[in-house]
Every structure is written in C-alpha cells, then in structure tokens.
Design a protein around this nucleic acid. Structure first.
Lengths: 193, 193
DNA sequence: ACCTGAACACCGTTCAAGT
DNA sequence: ACCTGAACACCGTTCAAGT
C-alpha cells in the first residue's frame, strides 16, 4: 500500500535486478505459453535460481499480479478518460473492448481473473479491485443515462466480459468474434423501451 | 461409427471390465477434481496398470469423450423433445439451461468444449457435433419464429453458453448466476422490434 | 489380445547451505 | 539480506516384458 505510489520498494541492487529480470521474462513466458507457463523455466531463462523466484513471488498468482499491475492501472485510467470523452454507453462499450483485449493477452488469464472475481485467489484481488471500481463508475453513468437496465450489476458485466475473452481466445479471429459477442451483450443490457 | 448404435465393441471380458471400471472411476474423478484430474490416480483407483488406461484411451480427451458420450446423447434427445413441446424461444432457452448445467458438472469442461468448438481437440469433435446439431435445430426454429435476430449464429449461441458455464462454475450460486446471465443473453439475441 | 509397471523427462515447492 | 540448487513428491507418457 505504502509503496504503490512511493516508487520501488527498497532492495539490494542485485535483488532488484533479479526481480526485474524475472518480471520481464515472466511476461514473455505468459504471453507465449499462457499463465501456466513453467516457473522452473522462467527462473532458468532469467538466469536465476528457482529459490530466488519463490523468494520474490511466493505464488504463481503473485508473479502474475506483478506482471499485470502496470497494464491494469493504465486500463483504469483509460476508463476514466473514456468516461469524460464519450457518451455513457459508448464509454462503457469501448472500455470493455479494451478490457477484453487485455484479458486475451495471456491464454488462461480470463480464468484466473474470474477466480478472483469470485473471491478466490486473494493474490489477484488488488488487480481486480481496480477493474471493478472503473467498471462501477462507467456502469453507473450508463445506468443513469438509461442505457442499461437496472438489474445489471458490475459483477454481471465483468463476468460476461471475462466470459467473452475466455471463449474467444482460441477462436480463429479473436478480436472480431469478441466484438460481435460484446455487441450482442450490450444489446442484452439495454432497457427494453 | 459402426459400433455407436450396434452396442458395445467386441472385447475380451477382462478388457471390457477394465474399460468400464476406468470409465466409472474417471467420471467420479472428473466430477471431484475437474477434467484435469490425475490419470495416474484414476488408473490406480481403478486397480489397473497405467498402460491399460492408455491402451483404452490414448489421450485424456478420448477418456473425457467416453465419459461424456451418454450424457450428451440424452442432452440431444431432450433438445428434440423440447422442440416439440415448447414454443420456439422457450425451447431454446430451456435447453440451453440444461446444457449449462451439464457443462458445469466438471470443472474445466467448458474450456475443453470451447477448444473443440474452435476446431482443436478432434477427440471431442463427435461430442460437440451432436450438441451443435441440436442447437442448430432449436435456433433455426427460434429464428423462423422471429424470436432471434438473423445475425446470431449457432457458434455464437454455443460459445456464449460455454462462456456462461465457464464463468459461473466457481461462483457461489452457479445455477442462479447462470440463469440471470442466460436471461440477459436471450434478451440480447432478441430482435429489436 | 491384453496387461503390467519400470523408466524417462518434466514440474512445483521447500529448505539447508552458502555469500 | 539474498541467492543457490539439491531433494522430494508428484505427474504424463512410453515401451519392453509378461500372460
């Protein structure tokens, strides 16, 4: 909490180097092999003992969370911008598109995020919290604008978006499919009148 | 193909016993541990050498497919019944509810099915084919009844249904959540007028 | 024709030993 | 304070040897 805005935590310089190398290699591995990429191999590719990986990131989720943090932060701020520049419904739609793109970056990521939406996997809770807050803002605005039914909750939205990413990620044209599904979904969210 | 309706394939009686034991144990294991349950343990619990498991089921998907076959068949015939007894839209809705319930039986099943909808995992193709055909019939009827937009494809429907199962399966009240999401979805499918 | 299980290559995770 | 890597328990998969 105190180090989230006050810059990098204090570390011995070799430790810091290892930490960053691990992060870089892990991102690449997750992108190429999915979120279940071999930790042993990540350590090896980072020229680091496996124990060092575990010291910095006690669980796979901790490592994943670290890799995700930056991206998720920019996702949130993009959401805020959109809220200011677009009409409520478009803001929501466009932002959700970005979220889906992000969730599709690593195979299996959407599953992990779903798990954390459901309360498991406390490691990713911070990452999800940010998303949830942004989604809440955009959804509320859309609701006030009468563009979305009252019964639709933030959980609904996030769950669906995860679902779309999940089910699209192996499809031949992920982005196209995802867009179509998202459009159908927003149509479902809209009020009947 | 020739043995799908002409009864069980010819096997030595001990082989047949092993085959069925494996099937029973595997179903239980998949239900309890998800579709990635340890094959080694399944073989052990079935009192069978691991090689025997591989002889009968060369891949995990083959085993899964065998476990699923019966259930998926009854799912298809239930779909046909519903097509005859309910109004087109209700038939589709109610059948999709059943599909979701089935996909939620094993953790991770929806992911596997999605993979096979997308053309990977040929092992499960047969199982998916049945689902697809039934979905096609029900969807066509709903379309003719003008209850569903023209652009909605079978793939859309199945993908969404998978998505719902997937994203619901770890939720606190899976069935309730799934129903809500399915309702929203059908709302999105409906024509604007 | 079918079964067995040892063998191999891999992985996650821990922890005593080092600097 | 941090790093290392051997050690342990597990898994998937193959295949030579058995009946």
């Amino acid at each position: 909490m105190n180090d989230s805005s006050s810059g990098p935590p204090a570390m011995r310089s070799d430790a810091r180097r290892n930490y960053e190398r691990l992060l870089r290699i892990a991102e690449d591995a997750f992108a190429k092999q999915g979120v279940n990429a071999s930790l042993t191999e990540i350590a090896k590719r980072a020229d680091v003992g496996i124990g060092t990986l575990y010291r910095h990131f006690p669980t796979r989720e901790a490592l994943l969370e670290a890799v995700l943090r930056d991206r998720f932060d920019t996702l949130s701020s993009q959401g805020r911008e959109m809220g200011e520049t677009y009409a409520p419904e478009d803001a929501l739609l466009n932002w959700l598109r970005l979220v889906i793109a992000e969730l599709s970056r690593f195979r299996g990521l959407a599953v992990s995020i779903t798990a954390c939406l459901d309360g498991m996997s406390p490691e990713l809770a911070a990452a999800c919290g940010g998303l949830r807050k942004t989604a809440e803002d955009l959804l509320t605005r859309a609701r006030l604008d009468e563009a979305v039914r009252d019964e639709v909750t933030v959980s609904d939205v996030l769950r669906f978006v995860n679902a779309i990413a999940l089910v699209t990620e192996q499809s031949p044209q992920p982005a196209g499919e995802a867009d179509r599904m998202l459009a159908l979904l927003m149509n479902g969210f809209r009020r009947p009148d």
